[in-house]
Simulated assay, not measured.
Amino acid sequence: MRITTKGQVTIPQDVRDFAGFQPGTEVEFLIGEDGVVRVIAAGQGPRARDRRLGAALAGLRGSADTGLSTDEIMALTRA
């Protein structure tokens, strides 16, 4: 296998079949601490997990509004 001057490489059919890569599949390249480069379907790696977590937290932001002031909440916790 050879990388073209544009940085492209053809993934062999048996590897595409094994990985479930279909035409149009977006992929990510991950570099492990062991120095091994992995190709995975986009949305399956740790970066995707971080994005999903960030989106979930953003969706929760401001949802715990109790209608109480900070001083009222502190008074309740100290009572």
Rank of each mutant, 00 (worst) to 15 (best):
A75T: 15
V37M: 11
F29G: 09
A75S: 12
D17F: 07
L76E: 11
D14E: 08
V27Q: 01
P46S: 03
I11G: 10
D14N: 11
G32N: 10
I31W: 01
S63R: 15
I31T: 13
A19C: 13
F21H: 01
L60N: 01
D17M: 06
T66W: 05
V15Y: 06
G24L: 12
T25G: 04
L60W: 01
G59Y: 02
E26T: 05
A41G: 04
V9M: 08
E33I: 14
A41E: 05
A19H: 06
L68Y: 07
I11T: 07
G45M: 06
V15K: 09
G35H: 09
R61C: 11
T10D: 03
P46C: 00
R51Y: 05
V39E: 02
M1W: 03
I73M: 14
D34T: 15
V9K: 01
G32L: 11
P12H: 07
A56H: 09
M74N: 08
E72M: 13
S63W: 03
T4C: 00
R78Y: 01
V39T: 13
G35C: 08
G54L: 13
A56S: 12
I40K: 13
D14Q: 12
I11D: 03
R51Q: 10
V15W: 10
T4H: 00
Q22H: 07
R52Q: 10
A79N: 06
R49E: 12
F21T: 01
Q13C: 11
E28F: 00
T10F: 02
I11M: 12
T77M: 10
P12Q: 04
S69Q: 06
R47A: 15
V36D: 02
L57S: 01
F18T: 06
L30P: 01
A64D: 09
A48M: 08
R52Y: 02
E26M: 05
F18E: 05
A55M: 15
L53H: 09
A55T: 14
A75M: 12
V27G: 02
G43Y: 12
M74F: 10
F29E: 05
G62K: 02
V39Y: 03
R52S: 09
V9I: 15
I40Y: 02
T5L: 09
D65G: 11
D14Y: 04
L57G: 02
R16E: 02
D14K: 14
G35N: 05
I11V: 15
E33T: 12
T66A: 06
T66G: 09
L57F: 12
L60S: 00
R52E: 11
R78L: 13
D50F: 12
M74E: 08
L57R: 07
G32T: 10
Q8Y: 05
G59P: 11
A58Q: 09
R51I: 15
R16M: 08
E33G: 14
I31H: 03
R51C: 03
T4D: 00
I31D: 01
E28Y: 00
A75P: 09
T66M: 04
Q13G: 10
L60F: 03
A75E: 15
G54P: 06
V15S: 02
R49H: 05
F18N: 04
P46W: 01
A48R: 05
V36M: 12
D34I: 11
A79H: 06
A64R: 10
G32S: 08
T5M: 03
G62V: 04
L68H: 11
M1F: 02
A41K: 15
V15H: 07
L30A: 08
G59D: 08
G45T: 07
M74A: 11
M74T: 14
T25L: 07
P23H: 02
G45V: 06
G54C: 07
I40A: 12
